[in-house]
Amino acid sequence: MTHLTLGQQLLDSCAALLLLLSFAMLSQRRVVTLVNLYAVQGAVLTAATLLLAWRTGEGHLYLSAALTLGLKVAFLPWLLHRLIRRLGVYWDTEPLLNVSGTMLVGLVIVVFAFALAQPITLLASTATRSAVGIAVSVVLLAFLMMITRRKAMSQVVGFLSMENGVFFGAMSASYGMPMVVELGVALDVLVGVLVLGVFFFQIRERFESLDLHHLEALKEHE
């Protein structure tokens, strides 16, 4: 093992934790736990942002850390928990692909993501080299989770986790997006979740269930 600085080690550990949490989400069937895992992912992201801010001295990173903390650790999980309680969806049904299969696909995705990130990591500054691959993996894994789940609730968490990956990627490749973009994205996510929340109630009223396979009935019958 090459001897890295303490900060680099911590950052790597944060990156690994993010990936670990992504896999934990992938293997989790309880929606409540899924939301909790999402909150923890947000917390790790906050820590990583703070760490990077401290190392680089970039002021706006502190701001985005605060934003992450407020939005992804506190507000959104709270909102989702409330939704779960109101809607009574605690469990997802059997996923389309069983957990082991999903994780195996996830493994392949990680390898693919790292192969993909290889040229970017060569270009990026050395401080956050290895993180890009993990960011891409987190995005793709969240995508995978959205594909394999049936309940709308899990898909929303997947969507949010995907945004986490994008955020981490931007942060590690170029020390964060411009503040305007970041705020915009945060707002987007917020509005997106709110709209989806309304959407859930509509779906449930219409089908008396949140299982998305009911939506298949919406296509035109020939």
Partner: peptide, 18 residues
Amino acid sequence: ASAFLFAVLGLLVHVLLG
């Protein structure tokens, strides 16, 4: 299987990052 895959992932992440 999750345990096994986590262990394999650990190996993978180690090779990737370590």
